[in-house]
C-alpha cells in the first residue's frame, strides 16, 4: 500500500514538473501578445493625441499588470524621474524586465530596436518604427505559439512518462 502511494507520488510530481515546464512555454506568446496590445494603444496615443511619451507609455499599459507591461511602466518612470533620454530609459527598462520575463533574445532585440528612435523623431517616423516593432513581435509571437504548443505537449507527456518509468523501476 505504501509502495503504491509512493509510486503515485512519483508520477504526480513528475507530471507536475512537466506541466510547469509546459506552462513556461505558453508564457512567452502570452507576454508577447500583451506587449503587442500595449503597442496598439501607444500607436493611438501618438497618432491621435500626440500624448507626451511618459504619459503615453503609462496609458498603453491601461489596467494590465503583466510582465510585459513592466517595460512600459519602468520606462515611463525612468523618463519622468531621471535624466535618461527616452531611448536610454527604454533600453534600461527592457534589460531589467527581460531577466524576469519569458521573452526570448529575439524579442528583446525587437524591443531594443524600437527604443532607438523613441521620443527622438516626429510622429510619422515614430509610428513607422512602432509598426515595424509590432510586426517583428507578431512574427515572434506566431513562432512562439507554435513552439509552445509542440513543447508544452511534449513536456506534459514527458512528465507523466518519466514519472511512470521511475515508479516502475522503484516498484
Amino acid at each position: 500500500m505504501v509502495r503504491l502511494l509512493g509510486a503515485a507520488l512519483v508520477v504526480g510530481s513528475a507530471a507536475l514538473i512537466g506541466n510547469t515546464m509546459a506552462r513556461n512555454y505558453s508564457e512567452r506568446p502570452r507576454q508577447l501578445a500583451e506587449i503587442a496590445s500595449a503597442f496598439a494603444v501607444l500607436e493611438t496615443e501618438i497618432s491621435y493625441a500626440r500624448t507626451p511619451l511618459a504619459e503615453a507609455l503609462v496609458r498603453a499599459c491601461g489596467t494590465r499588470r503583466g510582465v510585459g507591461m513592466r517595460v512600459f511602466r519602468l520606462a515611463a518612470d525612468l523618463i519622468r524621474s531621471s535624466e535618461l533620454l527616452p531611448g536610454e530609459a527604454w533600453r534600461t527598462a527592457v534589460h531589467r524586465v527581460y531577466a524576469w520575463s519569458a521573452l526570448a533574445p529575439e524579442d528583446r532585440e525587437a524591443l531594443l530596436a524600437f527604443g532607438e528612435t523613441l521620443g527622438a523623431c516626429g510622429a510619422e517616423d515614430q509610428l513607422r518604427h512602432l509598426a515595424l516593432a509590432r510586426e517583428r513581435l507578431r512574427a515572434n509571437e506566431v513562432r512562439a505559439r507554435d513552439e509552445a504548443e509542440r513543447m508544452a505537449r511534449m513536456w506534459r507527456y514527458l512528465g507523466v512518462t518519466v514519472g511512470a518509468m521511475v515508479a516502475l523501476l522503484l516498484y
Binding site: 507626451p52 533620454l85 527616452p86 521620443g119 527622438a120 516626429g122 510622429a123
Partner: peptide, 17 residues
C-alpha cells in the same frame, strides 16, 4: 544639442513637432 532638444520637448519630439 540633441539632448537639449529632447529635454525641451519633454522627451517626445512628436508632441512638439
Amino acid at each position: 544639442t540633441l539632448v537639449t532638444l529632447q529635454l525641451m520637448a519633454g522627451s517626445s519630439i512628436y508632441t512638439y513637432e
